[in-house]
């Protein structure tokens, strides 16, 4: 898949654009589900870089998502209308692109801060610290009146459409796969397998962990921006740690460090609650039961049949 990555990427983007022209034919509910799936793919694939490939245990992805959502929504709501009062379609799209980038960058900044403790912590401890960071981020947003406090931001324009979601989805998948399938990127896997041996081979584990956190946070921020402009309103409650856990579950069920599996898991786990909708009362009960049963019966993930392309040296 990575032989001619740039060609492939351009091709898929063109395809995505083509398909997005058909999107208006879909009914709004289906479109909404489809876009949510796309956003979840961005989230899960990016988290997979930290949790799957680098073996760090982050439980704070929703926090990064929140940073991205707030930053991009603030740009769209407060900055864009002032600078471009009478915007046409192109200008609006460009503004949205900039808003998303801003969200991603803000989130990447947060990634540096959260990644820093990971240099000294492992396993459960890291999990709980990243979880803590996610909660701290939420508490901070709750206290910033300019960002709506506990009520959050409302009336964010519906800019997120099929094109943008597939665009960012593809970029995320490409970036993570291209990174990991390189001599430099094999270092992430080495850090995951054995940190002490990795250091002994001259690998700066600190640098790798920070890169993983920053790249992963960047895309979580993008996903947050897409989410904000899909739902039109955001509040700190929507980014609690259950959100992070949902994403972690996608990564684990996908089979850790298996991007294809993670994408499938993101699709399935987004659809599952929708399918269970008719029995709305019990759907989360069933969801959690399924989670337990899956963990007990397939601890290696749902899709661990290893179809990951081999980074062959002839590439």
């Amino acid at each position: 898949m990575l032989h001619r990555p740039k060609t492939l990427l351009c091709f898929s983007l063109a395809l995505a654009f083509g398909v997005s022209l058909l999107a208006p034919q879909l009914n709004p509910y289906h479109l909404d589900v489809l876009l949510t799936i796309g956003i979840n793919i961005v989230l899960a694939v990016s988290l997979n870089l930290v949790n799957g490939y680098t073996g760090q245990f982050s439980l704070g992805h929703a926090g990064f998502m929140a940073v991205g959502a707030y930053a991009s929504a603030a740009f769209t709501l407060f900055a864009a209308p002032r600078w471009f009062p009478d915007a046409n379609f192109l200008v609006t799209s460009a503004c949205f692109f900039v808003a998303l980038l801003l969200g991603g960058l803000a989130s990447a900044g947060a990634g540096v801060i959260v990644g820093a403790p990971s240099l000294r912590l492992k396993g459960d401890y890291l999990a709980i610290v990243t979880l803590g960071f996610g909660e701290i981020i939420r508490v901070i947003f709750r206290n910033v009146d300019a960002l709506g406090g506990a009520l959050g931001l409302n009336g964010i324009p519906f800019h997120t459409n099929f094109f943008w979601v597939s665009f960012w989805g593809l970029i995320t998948i490409y970036m993570v796969l291209a990174l990991v399938n390189s001599s430099f990127g094999r270092g992430f896997l080495a850090v995951r397998d054995d940190e002490i041996a990795a250091e002994a081979m001259g690998i700066n584990t600190t640098q790798y962990k920070i890169i993983a956190f920053v790249v992963s946070a960047f895309f979580a921020g993008i996903a947050g921006g897409l989410y904000a402009h899909l739902k039109s309103s955001i509040d700190p409650k929507g980014f609690d740690f259950m959100r992070s856990i949902e994403i972690v579950v996608m990564v684990i069920l996908g089979g850790m460090a298996n991007t294809r599996g993670v994408i499938m898991a993101a699709v399935i786990l987004t659809l599952l609650p929708e399918i269970l909708c008719p029995i709305a009362e019990y759907r989360m009960v069933i969801y959690s039961l399924l989670l337990i049963i899956l963990m007990l019966t397939r601890p290696q993930g749902l899709f661990s049949f290893r179809i990951r392309p081999h980074p062959s040296h002839s590439a």
């Binding site: 896997l189 054995d194 040296h313």
Partner: peptide
């Protein structure tokens, strides 16, 4: 202490 899940090549 090899990297168990990596190939010999990697």
């Amino acid at each position: 202490r090899l990297f168990p899940s990596l190939t010999v090549f990697d």
